[in-house]
Design a binder for these strands. Structure first.
Lengths: 202, 202
DNA sequence: TAAATTGGCGTACAGTTGTAAGCTCAAAGT
DNA sequence: ACTTTGAGCTTACAACTGTACGCCAATTTA
């Protein structure tokens, strides 16, 4: 099995090379097959032994990023069970993720509105997990109808993601304020949705 | 003045060419100077008589887009004064804008999280106008402290923009639903902010 | 009217890109 | 032990990129 092992190793080398070349100034679209191959330590044409396309690589990266997001969710769930407060714990956990994996988050952020419909769809799917998970919590906590919880979760995730985007361009010392502001926004949302739901359960 | 007139004319030709080449599949980053020049009907090297850089062109496009946004705001203001409901009128007006100027909106959307810090800053500035304007209305209507109105306005604009992004990938017949859902989210936000502001005017 | 300015053009060059064709050679399969 | 497979390489090519340089011709200025 040394054969398949080696293959997997260089495949990872390609993926890592791609991730490492992403930055604030360089998006996936401006990566070149040759550069990636160079950093991965293989000949340009060898790239094709692993991916048919740069696009295929890109989708792999998005998948990988989605995986990390789901790990993040698991971590948040644990923290919530211990610490209690859903909103603030979630936001804080998310901000840590952005701080420590800015390249990964940037990828998601950019490809969400990028030029490839397939990429956009892939990112949307990953984010959908987030929303569903959050909606689950909300329904458990507020006992509101599922559709309402879903809509509320989407709004919350939108706000949190947007704050993450801001964070990418902000110095680290602004993070606490960004976090506080976002928590406030989410509380408004929760509060408003709860009382609206009570008044008109339409 | 026929001289400066001609110059302005081809300058506009370049700008129009650039806008027309933007699409769902092609972002500004993947425009080439040569292609733009070709469509504008000039030689590649003549491009430099008008812009030092593709970046300079890009910033011009963002400015132009910002201008259209501000016209949109003016239109929304008029409609609100006539029709009353701030939230639904604003969202509806915005959705019309997205539908009729999708390329322009896409530009803003993409460059907001694009690879150029200057572009990101330019887009952020344009959106800031939006928020300030909305905050003004909110303060007038709810008489809450300025900082609170600002935060609320930012949340609202974030949600509306995000819906606009969704609209770009959705068939036209989904627009009414997108609009309805967004209005709901904004009402929650307004409601929650109002009652939170009453309880703890911190 | 003469001189200066300048928008636009053509040519040219060096660099980079994706990828096709064919080779090597070690591992895997028989 | 022999054959097949396949990851990786080298070479090669055609397409395209941005832009430097110098010329032209028409408008503007003096």
């Amino acid at each position: 099995m040394t054969r398949a092992e080696q293959k997997e190793r260089t495949r990872q080398a390609i993926i890592n090379a791609a991730f490492s070349q992403l930055s604030a100034e360089k998006g996936f679209a401006s990566l070149s097959l040759r550069e990636v191959a160079r950093e991965a330590g293989i000949a340009p044409t060898s790239f094709y032994r692993h991916f048919a396309d740069m696009d295929e690589l890109g989708l792999t990266l998005v998948d990988e990023a989605g995986l990390m997001l789901r790990q993040l969710m698991r971590q948040a769930r644990l923290r919530i069970e211990k610490h209690g407060s859903v909103i603030s714990t979630s936001v804080e956990t998310f901000m840590e993720f952005v701080a420590e994996n800015s390249n990964v988050f940037r990828l998601l952020l950019r490809e969400r509105s990028g030029t490839s419909a397939a990429f956009r769809a892939a990112v949307a799917r990953e984010i959908q997990h987030f929303c569903a998970e959050l909606a689950h919590y909300l329904r458990k906590q507020t006992q509101c109808p599922p559709e309402l919880a879903q809509l509320q979760a989407e709004a919350m995730v939108t706000l949190v993601f947007h704050t993450g985007a801001d964070a990418l361009d902000a110095p680290r010392e602004h993070y606490p304020q960004l976090t506080r502001r976002t928590i406030m926004q989410l509380r408004w949302l929760a509060h408003g949705a709860a009382s609206y739901g009570r008044k008109q359960p339409d």
